[in-house]
Nucleic acid binder design. Structure first.
Lengths: 83, 83
DNA sequence: AAATATTAGAGCAAATTTGCCTTATTTAAA
DNA sequence: TTTAAATAAGGCAAATTTGCTCTAATATTT
């Protein structure tokens, strides 16, 4: 049984999540706590090492107070941390 | 260990997927085959009984030829099958 | 109505995610 | 540079998803 895993897509999503998280001024730990998730989980998602679930993405979006289409706008250039 | 599961969100997503799938003129079986997934999996996702993964959603979007933000636009009123 | 296509649903083994804990490593601040 | 904060990374058990196969139920067509 081959588990479907789109590494590239997951990497893009991870980058996008990090981008939005920083925009909203959260550390990984703060986000994890506010979501009721663990720090390691947030890290693993942002690094693209796991193929997380929809529900997890839903709570993250809610916690960051962004709409899902915004979080899934994966085509944007990387967030310039310091502008 | 309590697995996070947003039943309501999953139901909304399932409805949205069905909506988009029909818009694009796929049966569950056609979509499953084109995605390299199984029929039962598509069904379970649309019924909101499982909390599927990002990679799965990514292939589905690609196969349906829609952008992720479109697929995650969960606030639209239910698709009127026959207009 | 009968036949056909489509969707629903159940059960099982294998693969993966997740929380929890711990320890490095990197980054930022003092 | 030293100290602290933030992120990376590894391991383990429990929970869940997934493919597979099969059967039932529901729509759709003829």
């Amino acid at each position: 049984m081959k588990y479907l895993c789109d590494k590239e897509g997951l990497l893009y999503f991870g980058k996008r999540l990090r981008q939005v998280r920083l925009e909203q001024g959260f550390s990984q730990e703060e986000l994890a706590y506010a979501c009721g998730l663990t720090l390691s989980q947030i890290g693993r998602i942002e690094r693209g090492v796991i193929n997380t679930s929809l529900s997890t993405v839903f709570v993250i979006a809610r916690t960051l107070q962004v709409e899902l289409p915004y979080l899934f706008d994966l085509t944007l250039p990387p967030f310039e941390h310091r502008l």
